[in-house]
Design a protein around this nucleic acid. Structure first.
Lengths: 229, 229
DNA sequence: ACAAAAGTGTTAGACCTACACCCATGG
DNA sequence: CCATGGGTGTAGGTCTAACACTTTTGT
Protein backbone atom coordinates (compact mmCIF):
# COMPACT_ATOMS: atom_id res chain seq x y z
CA UNK A 1 0.00 0.00 0.00
CA UNK A 2 1.25 3.43 -0.90
CA UNK A 3 2.14 5.86 1.84
CA UNK A 4 -0.77 7.97 2.97
CA UNK A 5 -0.40 11.52 1.72
CA UNK A 6 -3.53 12.90 3.29
CA UNK A 7 -2.95 15.82 5.62
CA UNK A 8 -4.87 16.43 8.77
CA UNK A 9 -5.87 19.90 9.84
CA UNK A 10 -8.11 21.51 12.43
CA UNK A 11 -10.24 24.62 12.06
CA UNK A 12 -12.28 26.59 14.52
CA UNK A 13 -15.51 28.48 14.14
CA UNK A 14 -15.36 30.99 16.94
CA UNK A 15 -18.53 32.85 17.84
CA UNK A 16 -18.64 36.07 19.78
CA UNK A 17 -21.60 38.19 20.79
CA UNK A 18 -21.85 41.87 21.42
CA UNK A 19 -24.62 44.43 21.31
CA UNK A 20 -27.25 42.14 19.88
CA UNK A 21 -25.05 40.89 17.11
CA UNK A 22 -23.40 37.53 16.62
CA UNK A 23 -19.86 37.62 15.31
CA UNK A 24 -17.37 35.19 13.91
CA UNK A 25 -13.59 35.32 14.09
CA UNK A 26 -11.67 35.17 10.82
CA UNK A 27 -8.08 35.51 9.79
CA UNK A 28 -6.53 36.81 6.63
CA UNK A 29 -3.20 35.67 5.35
CA UNK A 30 -1.02 38.60 4.26
CA UNK A 31 1.36 36.49 2.19
CA UNK A 32 1.51 33.08 0.56
CA UNK A 33 -0.92 31.25 -1.65
CA UNK A 34 -3.91 32.34 0.40
CA UNK A 35 -2.96 35.99 0.29
CA UNK A 36 -5.93 38.23 1.06
CA UNK A 37 -8.36 35.38 1.49
CA UNK A 38 -10.32 35.20 4.70
CA UNK A 39 -10.47 31.86 6.44
CA UNK A 40 -11.30 30.19 9.73
CA UNK A 41 -8.45 30.06 12.20
CA UNK A 42 -6.77 26.67 12.04
CA UNK A 43 -3.89 24.71 10.63
CA UNK A 44 -2.20 21.36 10.44
CA UNK A 45 -2.03 19.04 13.38
CA UNK A 46 1.50 18.44 14.59
CA UNK A 47 3.02 15.05 15.22
CA UNK A 48 2.36 13.95 18.77
CA UNK A 49 -0.41 16.42 19.23
CA UNK A 50 -4.05 15.67 20.05
CA UNK A 51 -6.83 17.22 18.02
CA UNK A 52 -8.26 19.50 20.64
CA UNK A 53 -4.77 20.47 21.67
CA UNK A 54 -4.08 21.41 18.06
CA UNK A 55 -7.07 23.74 17.73
CA UNK A 56 -6.25 25.38 21.00
CA UNK A 57 -2.67 25.93 19.90
CA UNK A 58 -3.69 27.34 16.55
CA UNK A 59 -6.13 29.70 18.18
CA UNK A 60 -3.52 30.89 20.60
CA UNK A 61 -0.95 31.38 17.89
CA UNK A 62 -3.22 33.06 15.41
CA UNK A 63 -5.51 35.08 17.62
CA UNK A 64 -4.06 35.06 21.13
CA UNK A 65 -7.34 33.64 22.36
CA UNK A 66 -8.41 30.92 24.78
CA UNK A 67 -11.99 29.81 24.52
CA UNK A 68 -14.53 29.30 27.25
CA UNK A 69 -16.28 26.65 25.25
CA UNK A 70 -14.89 24.48 22.48
CA UNK A 71 -16.49 21.44 20.99
CA UNK A 72 -15.89 19.19 18.06
CA UNK A 73 -18.25 19.93 15.22
CA UNK A 74 -17.58 17.55 12.34
CA UNK A 75 -14.83 16.38 10.06
CA UNK A 76 -14.74 17.54 6.49
CA UNK A 77 -13.06 15.30 3.99
CA UNK A 78 -15.54 13.98 1.47
CA UNK A 79 -14.51 16.48 -1.14
CA UNK A 80 -10.93 15.49 -1.79
CA UNK A 81 -10.29 18.80 -3.51
CA UNK A 82 -11.62 21.06 -0.79
CA UNK A 83 -8.07 22.30 -0.59
CA UNK A 84 -6.81 22.42 -4.18
CA UNK A 85 -3.16 22.11 -3.19
CA UNK A 86 -3.36 18.72 -1.51
CA UNK A 87 -5.80 16.31 0.05
CA UNK A 88 -6.55 17.81 3.41
CA UNK A 89 -9.05 16.49 5.89
CA UNK A 90 -10.03 18.97 8.55
CA UNK A 91 -11.59 18.39 11.93
CA UNK A 92 -13.74 21.42 12.62
CA UNK A 93 -14.47 22.73 16.09
CA UNK A 94 -16.79 25.44 17.19
CA UNK A 95 -16.29 27.68 20.14
CA UNK A 96 -17.72 30.57 22.07
CA UNK A 97 -15.91 33.49 23.66
CA UNK A 98 -17.09 35.75 26.37
CA UNK A 99 -17.74 39.25 25.21
CA UNK A 100 -15.40 40.60 27.87
CA UNK A 101 -12.57 39.03 25.92
CA UNK A 102 -13.85 40.28 22.66
CA UNK A 103 -10.82 42.49 22.09
CA UNK A 104 -8.22 40.97 19.83
CA UNK A 105 -4.49 41.00 20.16
CA UNK A 106 -2.84 43.00 17.44
CA UNK A 107 -2.45 40.91 14.31
CA UNK A 108 0.94 39.48 13.55
CA UNK A 109 2.93 40.56 10.55
CA UNK A 110 1.70 37.60 8.61
CA UNK A 111 -1.95 37.58 9.54
CA UNK A 112 -4.82 39.85 10.21
CA UNK A 113 -7.51 38.82 12.68
CA UNK A 114 -10.96 40.31 12.71
CA UNK A 115 -14.50 39.85 13.97
CA UNK A 116 -17.25 39.86 11.37
CA UNK A 117 -21.00 39.98 11.91
CA UNK A 118 -22.19 36.53 11.13
CA UNK A 119 -24.37 37.57 8.24
CA UNK A 120 -21.90 40.00 6.87
CA UNK A 121 -18.76 37.91 6.54
CA UNK A 122 -16.49 38.05 3.50
CA UNK A 123 -16.15 35.19 1.06
CA UNK A 124 -14.25 32.39 2.75
CA UNK A 125 -11.42 30.17 1.54
CA UNK A 126 -11.90 26.47 0.79
CA UNK A 127 -15.17 25.05 2.09
CA UNK A 128 -15.05 27.25 5.16
CA UNK A 129 -18.40 28.81 4.33
CA UNK A 130 -19.95 25.38 4.59
CA UNK A 131 -18.19 24.72 7.88
CA UNK A 132 -19.49 28.02 9.20
CA UNK A 133 -22.99 27.11 8.09
CA UNK A 134 -22.78 23.77 9.86
CA UNK A 135 -21.50 25.41 13.03
CA UNK A 136 -24.28 27.95 13.05
CA UNK A 137 -26.91 25.27 12.67
CA UNK A 138 -25.35 23.35 15.52
CA UNK A 139 -25.25 26.40 17.71
CA UNK A 140 -28.92 27.10 17.02
CA UNK A 141 -29.79 23.52 17.75
CA UNK A 142 -27.83 23.28 20.97
CA UNK A 143 -29.23 26.48 22.33
CA UNK A 144 -32.63 24.80 22.57
CA UNK A 145 -31.64 21.98 24.82
CA UNK A 146 -28.32 22.84 26.44
CA UNK A 147 -27.12 25.66 28.59
CA UNK A 148 -24.67 26.83 26.02
CA UNK A 149 -24.58 30.53 25.31
CA UNK A 150 -23.75 31.75 28.77
CA UNK A 151 -20.17 31.76 27.63
CA UNK A 152 -21.12 34.51 25.24
CA UNK A 153 -22.30 36.78 28.03
CA UNK A 154 -20.61 38.42 30.98
CA UNK A 155 -20.49 36.38 34.16
CA UNK A 156 -23.30 38.45 35.55
CA UNK A 157 -25.87 39.71 33.16
CA UNK A 158 -29.30 41.29 33.16
CA UNK A 159 -32.03 38.95 32.03
CA UNK A 160 -32.70 41.01 28.98
CA UNK A 161 -29.21 40.25 27.69
CA UNK A 162 -29.92 36.54 27.83
CA UNK A 163 -33.19 37.02 26.08
CA UNK A 164 -31.59 39.17 23.41
CA UNK A 165 -28.87 36.60 22.89
CA UNK A 166 -31.42 33.89 22.24
CA UNK A 167 -33.38 36.09 19.90
CA UNK A 168 -30.25 37.06 18.01
CA UNK A 169 -28.93 33.55 17.57
CA UNK A 170 -32.26 31.95 16.79
CA UNK A 171 -33.40 34.90 14.70
CA UNK A 172 -36.82 34.82 16.28
CA UNK A 173 -38.92 36.90 18.60
CA UNK A 174 -39.36 35.40 22.05
CA UNK A 175 -41.99 36.31 24.61
CA UNK A 176 -40.27 37.96 27.54
CA UNK A 177 -42.50 36.56 30.25
CA UNK A 178 -42.50 33.01 28.99
CA UNK A 179 -38.77 33.05 28.45
CA UNK A 180 -37.98 34.25 31.92
CA UNK A 181 -40.42 31.85 33.51
CA UNK A 182 -39.02 28.87 31.68
CA UNK A 183 -35.36 29.77 32.14
CA UNK A 184 -35.69 30.40 35.84
CA UNK A 185 -37.70 27.22 36.32
CA UNK A 186 -34.74 25.21 35.05
CA UNK A 187 -32.95 26.01 38.26
CA UNK A 188 -29.44 26.83 37.12
CA UNK A 189 -29.75 30.58 36.87
CA UNK A 190 -29.28 32.57 40.04
CA UNK A 191 -30.32 36.03 40.93
CA UNK A 192 -27.64 38.26 42.43
CA UNK A 193 -28.33 41.29 44.54
CA UNK A 194 -26.66 43.57 42.09
CA UNK A 195 -28.26 45.91 39.68
CA UNK A 196 -27.21 46.41 36.09
CA UNK A 197 -25.22 49.48 35.25
CA UNK A 198 -27.19 52.61 34.52
CA UNK A 199 -28.72 52.84 31.12
CA UNK A 200 -31.87 54.26 29.77
CA UNK A 201 -34.88 52.99 31.61
CA UNK A 202 -35.18 50.91 34.72
CA UNK A 203 -32.05 48.93 35.56
CA UNK A 204 -32.51 45.18 35.86
CA UNK A 205 -31.18 42.75 38.43
CA UNK A 206 -28.10 40.82 37.48
CA UNK A 207 -28.19 37.05 37.11
CA UNK A 208 -25.50 34.41 37.11
CA UNK A 209 -25.27 31.01 35.47
CA UNK A 210 -24.49 28.31 38.01
CA UNK A 211 -22.35 25.90 36.05
CA UNK A 212 -21.86 23.52 38.95
CA UNK A 213 -25.56 23.16 39.51
CA UNK A 214 -26.09 22.66 35.80
CA UNK A 215 -23.49 19.92 35.54
CA UNK A 216 -24.95 18.19 38.58
CA UNK A 217 -28.39 18.25 37.03
CA UNK A 218 -27.08 16.85 33.77
CA UNK A 219 -25.46 13.98 35.56
CA UNK A 220 -28.81 13.19 37.07
CA UNK A 221 -30.25 12.85 33.59
CA UNK A 222 -31.92 16.24 33.55
CA UNK A 223 -32.70 17.64 30.16
CA UNK A 224 -34.87 20.45 28.87
CA UNK A 225 -36.12 21.87 25.65
CA UNK A 226 -37.08 25.39 24.77
CA UNK A 227 -40.12 25.07 22.60
CA UNK A 228 -40.94 28.65 21.81
CA UNK A 229 -37.41 29.23 20.62
CA UNK B 1 7.99 21.99 9.76
CA UNK B 2 8.45 18.26 9.92
CA UNK B 3 6.41 16.02 7.68
CA UNK B 4 3.13 15.02 9.22
CA UNK B 5 3.22 11.38 10.28
CA UNK B 6 -0.33 11.16 11.54
CA UNK B 7 -2.42 8.51 9.86
CA UNK B 8 -6.06 8.88 9.06
CA UNK B 9 -8.48 6.01 9.45
CA UNK B 10 -12.21 5.45 9.39
CA UNK B 11 -14.25 3.07 11.52
CA UNK B 12 -17.87 2.08 11.46
CA UNK B 13 -20.25 1.18 14.22
CA UNK B 14 -22.85 -0.89 12.43
CA UNK B 15 -26.08 -1.63 14.24
CA UNK B 16 -28.45 -4.40 13.32
CA UNK B 17 -31.70 -5.43 14.94
CA UNK B 18 -33.38 -8.77 15.10
CA UNK B 19 -35.88 -10.42 17.40
CA UNK B 20 -35.89 -7.67 19.99
CA UNK B 21 -32.14 -7.51 20.23
CA UNK B 22 -29.75 -4.85 19.06
CA UNK B 23 -26.56 -6.12 17.51
CA UNK B 24 -23.25 -4.68 16.46
CA UNK B 25 -20.97 -5.87 13.71
CA UNK B 26 -17.38 -6.70 14.63
CA UNK B 27 -14.43 -8.19 12.88
CA UNK B 28 -11.58 -10.27 14.15
CA UNK B 29 -8.19 -10.31 12.57
CA UNK B 30 -6.86 -13.86 12.13
CA UNK B 31 -3.24 -12.80 11.67
CA UNK B 32 -1.02 -9.82 12.30
CA UNK B 33 -0.51 -7.65 15.35
CA UNK B 34 -4.22 -7.57 16.15
CA UNK B 35 -4.57 -11.31 16.00
CA UNK B 36 -7.70 -12.51 17.79
CA UNK B 37 -8.76 -9.06 18.88
CA UNK B 38 -12.23 -7.91 17.97
CA UNK B 39 -12.56 -4.47 16.47
CA UNK B 40 -14.92 -2.22 14.56
CA UNK B 41 -14.75 -2.60 10.80
CA UNK B 42 -12.57 0.11 9.33
CA UNK B 43 -9.13 0.95 8.09
CA UNK B 44 -6.93 3.61 6.63
CA UNK B 45 -8.20 6.14 4.15
CA UNK B 46 -6.57 5.85 0.75
CA UNK B 47 -5.05 8.69 -1.16
CA UNK B 48 -7.64 10.36 -3.33
CA UNK B 49 -10.50 8.89 -1.39
CA UNK B 50 -13.22 10.77 0.47
CA UNK B 51 -14.05 9.84 4.05
CA UNK B 52 -17.49 8.44 3.51
CA UNK B 53 -16.21 6.62 0.44
CA UNK B 54 -13.50 5.08 2.60
CA UNK B 55 -15.90 3.71 5.21
CA UNK B 56 -18.14 2.32 2.54
CA UNK B 57 -15.19 0.61 0.87
CA UNK B 58 -13.93 -0.86 4.11
CA UNK B 59 -17.35 -2.16 4.95
CA UNK B 60 -17.71 -3.73 1.55
CA UNK B 61 -14.26 -5.29 1.71
CA UNK B 62 -14.49 -6.54 5.24
CA UNK B 63 -18.12 -7.51 5.53
CA UNK B 64 -19.63 -7.44 2.05
CA UNK B 65 -22.21 -5.02 3.31
CA UNK B 66 -23.79 -1.82 2.05
CA UNK B 67 -25.62 0.24 4.62
CA UNK B 68 -29.03 1.81 4.43
CA UNK B 69 -28.01 4.56 6.75
CA UNK B 70 -24.54 5.85 7.46
CA UNK B 71 -23.65 9.03 9.26
CA UNK B 72 -20.53 10.60 10.63
CA UNK B 73 -20.29 10.22 14.37
CA UNK B 74 -17.16 11.93 15.62
CA UNK B 75 -13.44 11.98 15.17
CA UNK B 76 -11.20 10.41 17.74
CA UNK B 77 -7.71 11.74 18.04
CA UNK B 78 -7.18 13.40 21.38
CA UNK B 79 -5.41 10.42 22.80
CA UNK B 80 -2.32 10.23 20.63
CA UNK B 81 -1.65 6.71 21.78
CA UNK B 82 -5.08 5.27 21.09
CA UNK B 83 -3.27 3.07 18.59
CA UNK B 84 0.03 2.15 20.25
CA UNK B 85 1.80 1.50 16.96
CA UNK B 86 1.48 4.98 15.50
CA UNK B 87 -0.51 8.18 15.84
CA UNK B 88 -3.80 7.38 14.18
CA UNK B 89 -6.79 9.67 14.03
CA UNK B 90 -10.01 7.93 13.17
CA UNK B 91 -13.21 9.34 11.82
CA UNK B 92 -15.98 7.19 13.20
CA UNK B 93 -19.29 6.59 11.44
CA UNK B 94 -22.33 4.81 12.61
CA UNK B 95 -24.75 2.94 10.46
CA UNK B 96 -27.86 0.85 10.44
CA UNK B 97 -28.66 -2.22 8.40
CA UNK B 98 -31.98 -3.67 7.58
CA UNK B 99 -32.63 -6.95 9.24
CA UNK B 100 -33.37 -8.54 5.89
CA UNK B 101 -29.69 -8.14 5.10
CA UNK B 102 -28.59 -9.37 8.42
CA UNK B 103 -26.88 -12.42 6.98
CA UNK B 104 -23.16 -12.03 6.54
CA UNK B 105 -20.99 -13.09 3.68
CA UNK B 106 -18.59 -15.81 4.64
CA UNK B 107 -15.54 -14.34 6.33
CA UNK B 108 -12.36 -14.03 4.32
CA UNK B 109 -9.26 -16.03 5.17
CA UNK B 110 -7.84 -13.11 7.07
CA UNK B 111 -10.87 -11.93 8.97
CA UNK B 112 -13.86 -13.20 10.79
CA UNK B 113 -17.03 -11.14 10.83
CA UNK B 114 -19.74 -11.55 13.39
CA UNK B 115 -22.79 -9.92 14.94
CA UNK B 116 -22.75 -9.47 18.70
CA UNK B 117 -25.61 -8.46 20.97
CA UNK B 118 -24.82 -4.92 21.97
CA UNK B 119 -24.52 -5.66 25.63
CA UNK B 120 -22.67 -8.85 25.13
CA UNK B 121 -19.78 -7.83 22.92
CA UNK B 122 -16.22 -8.99 23.49
CA UNK B 123 -13.46 -6.68 24.63
CA UNK B 124 -12.58 -4.34 21.78
CA UNK B 125 -9.24 -3.21 20.39
CA UNK B 126 -7.95 0.35 20.82
CA UNK B 127 -10.57 2.81 22.01
CA UNK B 128 -13.29 1.07 20.08
CA UNK B 129 -15.34 0.45 23.18
CA UNK B 130 -15.53 4.18 23.66
CA UNK B 131 -16.52 4.72 20.05
CA UNK B 132 -19.24 2.14 20.42
CA UNK B 133 -20.45 3.84 23.56
CA UNK B 134 -20.61 7.19 21.78
CA UNK B 135 -22.47 5.67 18.85
CA UNK B 136 -25.02 4.05 21.09
CA UNK B 137 -25.69 7.29 22.89
CA UNK B 138 -26.10 9.04 19.59
CA UNK B 139 -28.48 6.40 18.32
CA UNK B 140 -30.58 6.69 21.47
CA UNK B 141 -30.60 10.43 21.16
CA UNK B 142 -31.50 10.52 17.50
CA UNK B 143 -34.30 8.07 17.90
CA UNK B 144 -36.19 10.65 19.94
CA UNK B 145 -36.29 13.37 17.34
CA UNK B 146 -35.53 11.82 13.98
CA UNK B 147 -37.08 9.08 11.95
CA UNK B 148 -34.03 6.93 12.15
CA UNK B 149 -34.55 3.29 12.97
CA UNK B 150 -36.83 2.34 10.12
CA UNK B 151 -33.68 1.15 8.40
CA UNK B 152 -33.44 -1.49 11.04
CA UNK B 153 -36.82 -2.94 10.18
CA UNK B 154 -38.29 -4.57 7.11
CA UNK B 155 -39.83 -2.22 4.58
CA UNK B 156 -43.25 -3.21 5.81
CA UNK B 157 -43.60 -4.00 9.43
CA UNK B 158 -46.29 -4.53 12.02
CA UNK B 159 -46.58 -1.71 14.48
CA UNK B 160 -45.46 -3.87 17.31
CA UNK B 161 -42.08 -4.30 15.66
CA UNK B 162 -41.55 -0.57 15.65
CA UNK B 163 -42.58 -0.33 19.24
CA UNK B 164 -40.30 -3.20 20.22
CA UNK B 165 -37.41 -1.59 18.37
CA UNK B 166 -37.82 1.61 20.34
CA UNK B 167 -38.11 -0.23 23.59
CA UNK B 168 -35.02 -2.28 22.83
CA UNK B 169 -32.83 0.63 21.83
CA UNK B 170 -33.99 2.98 24.54
CA UNK B 171 -34.12 0.23 27.14
CA UNK B 172 -37.44 1.46 28.42
CA UNK B 173 -41.03 0.39 28.51
CA UNK B 174 -43.28 2.36 26.25
CA UNK B 175 -47.06 2.58 26.41
CA UNK B 176 -48.48 0.91 23.31
CA UNK B 177 -51.43 3.23 22.81
CA UNK B 178 -49.52 6.44 23.33
CA UNK B 179 -46.71 5.30 21.09
CA UNK B 180 -49.00 4.40 18.22
CA UNK B 181 -50.99 7.59 18.57
CA UNK B 182 -47.92 9.78 18.54
CA UNK B 183 -46.14 7.96 15.74
CA UNK B 184 -49.12 7.96 13.45
CA UNK B 185 -49.83 11.60 14.19
CA UNK B 186 -46.45 12.53 12.76
CA UNK B 187 -47.77 11.69 9.34
CA UNK B 188 -44.95 9.79 7.75
CA UNK B 189 -46.04 6.27 8.56
CA UNK B 190 -48.56 4.70 6.23
CA UNK B 191 -50.86 1.82 6.72
CA UNK B 192 -50.83 -0.84 4.03
CA UNK B 193 -53.66 -3.24 3.34
CA UNK B 194 -51.51 -6.21 4.12
CA UNK B 195 -51.53 -8.34 7.20
CA UNK B 196 -48.49 -9.59 8.99
CA UNK B 197 -47.49 -13.19 8.49
CA UNK B 198 -49.18 -15.74 10.62
CA UNK B 199 -47.88 -16.05 14.12
CA UNK B 200 -49.42 -16.64 17.45
CA UNK B 201 -52.26 -14.32 18.17
CA UNK B 202 -54.06 -11.85 16.00
CA UNK B 203 -52.01 -10.70 13.02
CA UNK B 204 -51.38 -6.98 12.77
CA UNK B 205 -51.63 -4.66 9.79
CA UNK B 206 -48.38 -3.83 8.08
CA UNK B 207 -47.09 -0.28 8.00
CA UNK B 208 -44.58 1.47 5.81
CA UNK B 209 -42.26 4.41 6.43
CA UNK B 210 -42.77 7.06 3.79
CA UNK B 211 -39.30 8.50 3.38
CA UNK B 212 -40.33 11.02 0.74
CA UNK B 213 -43.02 12.48 2.92
CA UNK B 214 -40.60 12.61 5.84
CA UNK B 215 -37.95 14.45 3.87
CA UNK B 216 -40.51 16.89 2.59
CA UNK B 217 -41.68 17.60 6.10
CA UNK B 218 -38.14 18.12 7.32
CA UNK B 219 -37.50 20.65 4.59
CA UNK B 220 -40.52 22.53 5.83
CA UNK B 221 -38.88 22.82 9.24
CA UNK B 222 -40.94 20.05 10.81
CA UNK B 223 -39.47 18.49 13.90
CA UNK B 224 -40.79 16.27 16.63
CA UNK B 225 -39.77 14.83 19.93
CA UNK B 226 -40.82 11.65 21.62
CA UNK B 227 -41.17 12.49 25.27
CA UNK B 228 -42.23 9.24 26.79
CA UNK B 229 -39.26 7.55 25.24
C1' DA C 1 -43.72 64.35 33.54
C1' DC C 2 -41.91 61.69 30.05
C1' DA C 3 -39.20 58.15 27.88
C1' DA C 4 -37.18 53.76 28.27
C1' DA C 5 -36.65 49.32 29.71
C1' DA C 6 -37.79 45.89 33.70
C1' DG C 7 -40.92 43.20 35.99
C1' DT C 8 -44.98 40.42 36.49
C1' DG C 9 -49.99 36.49 36.12
C1' DT C 10 -53.71 34.39 33.95
C1' DT C 11 -56.16 31.68 30.82
C1' DA C 12 -57.17 28.53 26.85
C1' DG C 13 -55.54 25.01 24.37
C1' DA C 14 -52.22 21.40 23.27
C1' DC C 15 -49.84 17.60 24.65
C1' DC C 16 -48.39 13.96 27.72
C1' DT C 17 -49.49 10.19 30.83
C1' DA C 18 -51.70 6.55 32.82
C1' DC C 19 -54.71 3.08 32.41
C1' DA C 20 -58.12 -1.89 30.80
C1' DC C 21 -60.98 -4.17 27.88
C1' DC C 22 -62.46 -6.34 23.54
C1' DC C 23 -60.99 -8.45 18.98
C1' DA C 24 -59.02 -11.60 15.50
C1' DT C 25 -56.54 -15.55 14.64
C1' DG C 26 -54.48 -20.38 15.19
C1' DG C 27 -54.33 -24.45 17.57
C1' DC D 1 -62.70 -22.44 23.74
C1' DC D 2 -58.34 -20.97 24.95
C1' DA D 3 -53.99 -18.64 24.34
C1' DT D 4 -51.69 -15.06 22.13
C1' DG D 5 -50.87 -10.76 20.63
C1' DG D 6 -53.47 -6.62 18.12
C1' DG D 7 -56.29 -2.73 18.42
C1' DT D 8 -58.58 1.14 20.66
C1' DG D 9 -60.47 5.92 24.06
C1' DT D 10 -60.65 8.90 27.82
C1' DA D 11 -59.73 11.88 31.70
C1' DG D 12 -56.37 14.49 34.65
C1' DG D 13 -52.37 16.90 34.83
C1' DT D 14 -48.67 19.57 32.90
C1' DC D 15 -46.69 22.58 29.67
C1' DT D 16 -46.99 26.05 26.11
C1' DA D 17 -48.63 30.30 24.02
C1' DA D 18 -50.71 34.45 23.88
C1' DC D 19 -51.42 38.62 25.86
C1' DA D 20 -50.85 44.35 28.62
C1' DC D 21 -50.19 47.00 32.39
C1' DT D 22 -47.33 48.74 36.29
C1' DT D 23 -42.68 49.93 38.22
C1' DT D 24 -38.25 52.01 38.34
C1' DT D 25 -34.89 54.95 36.84
C1' DG D 26 -32.58 58.96 34.17
C1' DT D 27 -33.32 63.11 31.81
Amino acid sequence: MKAQKIKLAVDAVVFGYEKERLYILLIQQKFGPLKNQWALPGGFVKNGEGLQQAVERELREETGMTLDYLEQLATFGDDIERDPRAQVVTVAYYGLVNSSRFVLHAGSDAEKTQWFPIHDAPKLAFDHAQILETALERLKGKLRYQAVGFDLLDKEFPFSDLEQLYMTILERKIDRRNFRKKMLSLGFIEETTKQAAKTNGRPGKLFRFNQKKYKKLRKQGFHFELKFA
